[in-house]
């Protein structure tokens, strides 16, 4: 499960790396950064959930299932970003990434709340992670 999620996250995040690379000189570096952020970000999210979410603390597998659901709801944003960039030539992948990562966090939180998690562990932690992830990607995309 852990490997599947890591591979899924790196693939989905790398799409945004490719889209950002189209507008940047150091494009391939951005793809690598996106892949790294996908793998590292998901590890951080699981770690935060294990630390602050009582449901995941009791059963770490629940955390992976929640992240898996979150990643599934990240997919529509990836598809829309590809269509927007490829067909309409709107280079606004950052907006798609931010909204997508927030949807990832919200869907992950919704799953955990269904399992009986508290509002802090089930809603606040994934949303704070999403905000941080979005900000880091914005800074990295600007830096390269």
């Amino acid at each position: 499960m852990k490997q599947q999620i890591t591979v899924g996250a790196t693939l989905l995040f790398s799409v945004f790396g490719f889209l950002a690379a189209l507008d940047h000189e150091n494009g391939w570096l951005l793809v690598l950064v996106a892949v790294g952020l996908g793998a590292f970000g998901i590890a951080v999210l699981q770690s935060l959930l294990t630390r602050f979410n009582e449901v995941v603390k009791a059963n770490p597998e629940t955390g992976y299932l929640a992240i898996k659901q979150g990643l599934a709801f990240f997919v529509p944003f990836v598809v829309l970003a590809i269509v927007a960039d490829g067909f309409f030539e709107w280079h606004a992948a950052q907006a798609f990434f931010s909204a997508g990562v927030s949807a990832l966090g919200a869907s992950c939180g919704a799953y955990l709340m269904q399992q009986g998690a508290s509002k802090v562990g089930g809603f606040v932690v994934p949303m704070v992670w999403a905000l941080g992830c979005s900000a880091i990607w914005m800074l990295l995309a600007a830096a390269f």
Binding site: F73, V75, P76, F77, A95, A106
Partner: peptide, 28 residues
């Protein structure tokens, strides 16, 4: 505008997921 449109996808996916009895694939 587009950001707002994208943020609407979260309530939309929540709505579809709710009415699909929390089935992920149909909702996505």
């Amino acid at each position: 505008g587009v950001t707002g449109l994208l943020w609407a996808l979260n309530p939309i996916s929540a709505t579809i997921r709710h009415y699909c009895d929390d089935k992920t694939v149909p909702a996505v």
